[in-house]
Simulated assay, not measured.
Amino acid sequence: MIRSHASSFAGLPVRPFTPGEPLPEDPSAVAWRLEVEDFEAAPEEFADLVATFRATVPAAAVRAVVVGEWGSAYERALPVELLVEAAAEWTGLRAVFLADLVSEECEISWLTLTDITALLTAYPALETLWVRGGNALRLSPVRHDRLRELRFESGGLPGAVVRAVGESSLPALERLVFWLGRTDYGADTGVDELAPVLAGAGLPALRHLGLCNSEIADVVARVVADAPVVARLAVLDLSMGVFTDNGLDALLAGQPLTHLRRLDLTHHFLSDEAQQRVVAALPGVDVDLSDAQEVEVYHGREYRFTAVGE
């Protein structure tokens, strides 16, 4: 469950754009938040807001944009074309966060996204892209020479998006995070979809990889164990998912992980013995085992859940 909006993004404080309100002394020193207050606002209201923003804030001062509620986000596709249309003006834009909505506005699995490929091609100097939601999200393989951080937050991420990232050429990408999610919220990432990412052919600079919030965390651990990309990582993040002793056994049976600076296993289902074993196996590695979870039992059946679903 997402409870709060981003207060900072790309190293800048987030400031909502309010028509008629005086601009800060330095409009480039903030990440501008674009949103309409009415969650059922008509499409033209958000379009008018973006138009007013373009007419008010000097184009050269737009460094980071956070898109909040655009009106009926639960059923109307995020209007990414409005950002694409501004590309010729916003030549200094370096960071975009799509769909920073909290659960009270729209549950993460209800957010209706769209094809975001055009955003990357329109902004060849973009360095950071965060995307929240997975419903109707699409991406085609691209080449982008400047992108350094790519993050997908979802209760159910389409496997085709994961594959497209792996098949892209992203020579500058250092941080890549996927919240894979659960099948009942649209997740369908499997071993085949992960393969291009884990091969890492198009990700030579990758140092931080997150395969998070997965109901198949043990399967993910098994394929990560022998993945070529792992050897170049400083941070491996398998947090937020259904990670059990079986997953740990597979992970530790693979390639050495002692080169890692950090292994994030937050929100896990490991036994006490397994927790002790992973710490002992990786001396010098910061192993985060916080937020241990308890198995829930209903009518004799065991249930384990990811950190974020609906």
Rank of each mutant, 00 (worst) to 15 (best):
M1E: 13
I2C: 06
R3Y: 11
R15Q: 13
P22G: 13
P24N: 14
E25R: 12
S28I: 11
A31G: 11
R33Y: 09
E37D: 15
A42I: 13
E44S: 15
F46L: 05
A47H: 12
D48W: 11
A51T: 13
T52P: 06
F53K: 06
R54V: 13
T56Q: 12
V57E: 09
V57A: 06
V57K: 08
V57N: 07
A61N: 08
W70C: 05
V80D: 02
A86S: 12
A87Q: 06
A88G: 12
W90V: 10
A99P: 00
D100I: 08
V102R: 08
S109A: 15
L111C: 08
D115A: 05
T117Q: 12
T121Q: 10
A125E: 15
W130M: 08
R132K: 12
R132G: 05
G133K: 07
G134L: 02
A136D: 13
L147P: 01
E149R: 14
L150F: 04
R151Y: 15
G159A: 14
V162F: 01
R163A: 10
V165D: 02
E167K: 12
E167S: 12
S168W: 11
L170H: 06
L173T: 01
W179L: 05
G181Q: 05
G181W: 05
R182Y: 10
T183Y: 14
T183I: 12
Y185I: 04
A187K: 01
V191Q: 03
A195L: 03
P196G: 02
G202D: 09
P204E: 08
P204V: 09
D218T: 07
V220Q: 02
V223L: 03
V224L: 04
A225T: 00
P228E: 11
L236D: 07
T244G: 06
D245P: 11
L248D: 04
G254M: 08
P256R: 03
L257K: 01
L257E: 00
H259T: 02
H259E: 06
L260H: 04
L260Y: 04
L260Q: 03
R262I: 00
R262A: 04
A274G: 07
R277W: 04
V278H: 10
L282D: 12
V285L: 06
V285S: 02
D286E: 14
V287C: 08
S290M: 05
E296C: 04
Y298L: 14
T306A: 10
E310G: 04
